[in-house]
Design a protein around this nucleic acid. Structure first.
Lengths: 202, 202, 202, 202
DNA sequence: ACGTACGGGACCCCCCGTTAAT
DNA sequence: ATTAACGGGGGGTCCCGTACGT
């Protein structure tokens, strides 16, 4: 996500710079000037590509969502005959993300959601969409696992997906505040145990 | 939380107004002028009581924490011989909060955390403290339950408390973004099931 | 004035779009981008035809002047043996213009004059020229009328022409501000009465 | 109008500076920075007194209107038994204004009207109000003259007042464009002759 | 304790104009 | 002839905080 070699087109450089800055400072604290400086462009160019900061934010959310798809692809796109393992792999991927030492585990969607959902309709809708996509992809995975491995207890795939989304976002929020990513892995482990409980292997 | 009858001392009026505004607009979007207007005071008074906006934020976080203590008291302060029931009651209290139609379920700590944790040390520390208190109180409750009702599976009370905190904050974030509080109760129900799973009654 | 069918060459489309936009928004409020959009061209083309916005403004003033010549031709170009009637017809033409319901009675010269005469020499000179041409044409008409119908009172044709120009511009200004074109016809009627007074028929 | 000695309160200094700048540059070309610099204040102060530039513009229009009242007082407030003479005196006052060598004869109302009437409702209404006040005061004067000196011809005082307003505004516009104030006095002389014609003394 | 006047700084947005390419 | 990309420079707005009264 941090390859902003000047070979990339200007628009992508702007989006990339915005994502990095938003992740490390938040949306409001990130100024258009900072983004332009990081992308090695001027404000004039910025407003050539984006009508305003909100539109850039929406583009950043979409790019972030697409980025997520590549990360989760291994689990989400799994079509093997062992979908339950893919589900556990999914949780594992998140855990791995949380333990990278180089980049703290943060989410553009969660960041912009908390800051802007109440005051900016466009950003709220874009955040809502990304959350829904994440959940839908996960729900599909859960559904496949459920169909394949008869679960121990009754549950709705959608609900479980939202539950995972919730613990994921909440954990990142807490980790950011406590400046300690360990809590994320710890919470994800409990989420995994809950999934095991539902599927009967725990 | 919304009794700001002019009988209250000015400082409390300011904090109360700040909490309401932060909950509905976020921290950055809430200006000192707005707070003063809502508290029916002028900026002169504001800076008489608070050195700057950050200090007010910290005060708001403390007031919010104290407010939480009264809400959760029924569960946290339970010293009956049925602590497990108090634990379930704790989750129930949160669920009830999420279903109030008059005030959307939001949290000053979560809001300020997400917006300011990365850029403002004082606010981050204050948020971190409130999160820790919440977790510690909850962990104590879980510990009592664990001691009384031998659980089915091994788990650390602290970890479970952080897990509950995570799902609580994450759910509020998602509810805010999707403008639908129902997700909170739904997630809390899954959290309850996980607790049941650990304690063997599920 | 509003035939901007795409058959017209690009330059004319730009001028036409500019005139319409200036009439409805003023000169400063009309941006180069708006003009390009209205003309269905891009900025590259704009600056191919016009060195800068000022040059376009000057072109618009000239086009507007030429447009005026066609409108007043019936009176200005009259070479009948009843020039006084042509003079009254001239005032009548203006009155008719002011009562068109479809297009409010406005003038590019007056608009640009008031906005730019003090800060832009090129535009001021172009405006000044158009005002002079209008007055000169009108003065010629008055001169013919004076020569033919011996007036009741002494007056200079040039002065009367400027007087008519003044009441014409001032009335359009007032009409625009009050959003009521009726004042124009009303003032023109008084102008007509003044002419009658001078020529002795009133 | 140009006494902006720093003894005046800040708000008045801002309005005074705005009037001078608007008269010499127009409304759009006058920036908040320029106004602040001329008033020896900072932008922070500006927005303490005025919510935005529009509000300052409205205040400037009101101040300008009040200023006009003092100038025309000699005629408008005349309650002698020779109101027709006051009416001629009124035209004379305008003529004198137009011939001051030190300050070109310009009008804040006319300037802002032409620039902003189409795009800014607040300014348009304020301009419209000032035009109406000017006309109403003048109409009252004409009414008194009509009642006292039986006129030669039938006419409505209101209409004549608007006619004078029109020639006054139009003449200032032309004078500004041609950079020659002489046209104003010339046109006012014709207006005087028209009044004479109506009252029968011409 | 509380209010008003004011300062200083920066943020978003926009707009005119150029350049390289087609 | 026409376009997209990009530069550079403000303009209006706003907001936190201070100084100084009362």
């Amino acid at each position: 996500m941090s390859t902003k070699t000047k070979i990339l087109p200007a628009k992508d450089r702007l989006i990339g710079a915005a994502i990095e800055l938003i992740l490390s400072q938040g949306y409001n604290a990130t100024t258009v000037d900072q983004i332009c400086q990081a992308a090695e462009l001027t404000k004039g160019s910025f407003f050539h590509y984006f009508k305003n900061k909100e539109v850039l934010g929406i583009a950043a959310l979409e790019t972030w969502g697409a980025y997520g798809k590549t990360i989760y692809a291994e689990a989400w796109d799994d079509d093997s005959d062992r979908p339950l393992e893919a589900l556990y792999r999914f949780i594992e991927i998140m855990t791995e993300l949380s333990m990278r030492p180089e980049a703290p585990c943060r989410c553009v969607v969660g960041t912009i959601s908390q800051e802007m959902a109440q005051t900016n309709e466009g950003l709220r809708d874009a955040c809502s969409l990304q959350l829904s996509i994440w959940t839908e992809m996960t729900a599909q995975l859960i559904k496949r696992a459920k169909a394949h491995s008869a679960p121990n207890k009754a549950f709705e795939p959608d609900e479980l997906a939202w539950f995972l989304n919730g613990i994921w976002q909440g954990s990142m929020l807490i980790a950011k505040t406590r400046q300690n990513p360990q809590i994320i892995a710890q919470n994800l482990e409990h989420a995994r145990r809950y999934v095991s409980c539902l599927f009967g292997s725990y």
